[in-house]
Design a protein around this nucleic acid. Structure first.
Length: 417
DNA sequence: TGACGTCAAGATCCG
DNA sequence: CGGATCTTGACGTCA
């Protein structure tokens, strides 16, 4: 059972993907952005390996306009050795890579140019994974596409195009149920006819379940038979609903007990779980530590990152956590207890006076000049008088931390919530 | 024609 | 001038 996260790592400096607009595309900007993004991908993989995280989805933004005629740079040749070395790094870390083109890559469209563009996009994704030296278990996850008033015909078009895809795409392509149109039952029917593995997405399924009343576990068992030996372990997507947003919006973080319940339901299955959640790696580590266990050092390292968030809610809780971490218990039960306590604390309201003290402490580590000091003092004063919200104050502190590359601050979760 | 999702780039405003 | 904040982009489908 592997657990992983998608595209970006919160609190890991130098891992953001830069993008370009069409108007600013040139040989130079393309070179620069590709170089930066590939270096950042290396940092992401290094971090992921260091944390023992077994799954990672590479952002489609790695190469700007990767599948567009606007990009004439043979990036896979220019950066061949660098990409290969990143692939080796991932392999050493036992990291299974994947990619997931967005909602705009549609191969079942009745419009030929849309399909041609989509195929070019899939070739781009396959080329990224191939350049990294990935085996065919590194998958490209795709939705079926549009309905066009006739889902049967649209499904048939999907299968026809799927069969015509170049081998390097087809060997990696897997299909997923979506939250509006194609239910897991319909995806499975297509998967069986096309001979393509199916990914079960629990949240999409909750919103768009279709008429057959199978349990989640039964659906996952059905999907299991679409995965053949060379495809690697069966994959699923797991996410939770953000209660404050529209149906289908991913929650800011994974609620542990709800996840553990789902995880228990997977017993006896061999599945890789890709989490889709706003806080990315943060929740991935939580779910990993609470299921497979964690060393005291791993929990200690997480605690240091959460610390300012606890401090701004209730400094007394800092001691509770320290006590917990010093107490006994094996890696798994300690992990569960640690993250349950953290969730309880993070659900508490931030007290304004306490948030001021925390902000002052964090800001102090980032201020290098009197001007900066005065600017931050002003922001803190404005927050004290309730003229600006806390996240605006944090934003100014983050800008400073970035400008001076203050790693102790940048690696904390202080700015994430 | 705008919503949908995403989030950095780009533009503009502010101190 | 630099930082903060607002707007745009780039894609396809559907209401």
């Amino acid at each position: 059972m592997g657990i992983g996260y998608a595209c970006l790592a919160a609190g890991v400096p130098q891992t953001e993907m830069k993008s370009l607009t069409l108007a600013s595309v040139s040989e130079k900007t393309l070179m620069d952005t590709c170089r930066t993004n590939i270096a950042h991908l290396k940092n992401l993989i290094t971090y992921t390996k260091g944390q023992g995280i077994e799954l990672f989805r590479i952002s489609s933004d790695l190469i700007p306009f990767g599948s567009s005629v606007a990009n004439t740079l043979p990036w896979w040749e220019v950066f061949a050795s660098e990409l290969a070395s990143i692939g080796v790094l991932a392999q050493e870390g036992g990291i299974r890579l994947s990619m997931h083109p967005g909602q705009y890559t549609v191969i079942n469209s009745p419009n030929k140019s849309v399909v041609d563009n989509a195929i070019a996009d899939l070739l781009y994704h396959a080329r990224v994974l191939a350049s990294l030296g990935c085996t065919p278990d590194a998958k490209i996850i795709l939705h079926i596409g549009g309905g066009y008033g006739d889902k049967e015909a649209a499904s048939r078009r999907f299968i026809t195009v799927y069969r015509s895809l170049p081998h390097e795409v087809r060997q990696r392509l897997v299909i997923e149920n979506d939250d509006k149109l194609y239910t897991i039952g319909e995806v499975l029917a297509i998967a069986e006819k096309a001979g393509c593995p199916a990914v079960f997405d629990n949240l999409h399924h909750a919103i768009n379940p279709g008429r057959e009343a199978l349990t989640e576990r039964e659906w996952m068992l059905q999907c299991a038979s679409t995965w053949k030996p060379g495809d690697g372990r069966q994959k699923i997507h797991y996410s939770q609903q953000d209660p404050t947003k529209r149906a289908g919006s991913h929650s800011p973080s994974i609620a542990l007990d709800e996840f553990l319940l789902f995880y228990e339901g997977l017993s006896g299955l061999s599945i890789d779980i890709m989490l889709e959640v706003k806080d990315k790696n943060i929740s991935a580590l939580k779910c990993m530590h609470a299921t497979s266990g964690a060393t005291r050092e791993q929990l200690e390292a997480q605690w240091q990152r959460y610390r300012p968030l606890v401090h701004e809610r209730d400094p007394a809780m800092v001691w509770e956590i320290k006590e917990l971490l010093q107490g006994g218990g094996d890696g798994q039960s300690l992990g569960v207890a640690f993250y349950r306590l953290l969730e309880r604390i993070l659900a508490m309201e931030v007290s304004r006076p306490q948030a001021v003290i925390t902000a002052e402490t964090v800001a102090k580590q980032c201020i290098r000049t009197p001007t900066e000091g005065r600017r931050i003092d002003k922001r803190i004063a404005a927050y004290k008088r309730a003229e600006i919200p806390l996240d605006k104050l944090k934003q100014s502190i983050l800008t400073l931390a970035n400008n001076h590359a203050v790693d102790e601050v940048l690696t904390s979760y202080y700015f994430m919530m």
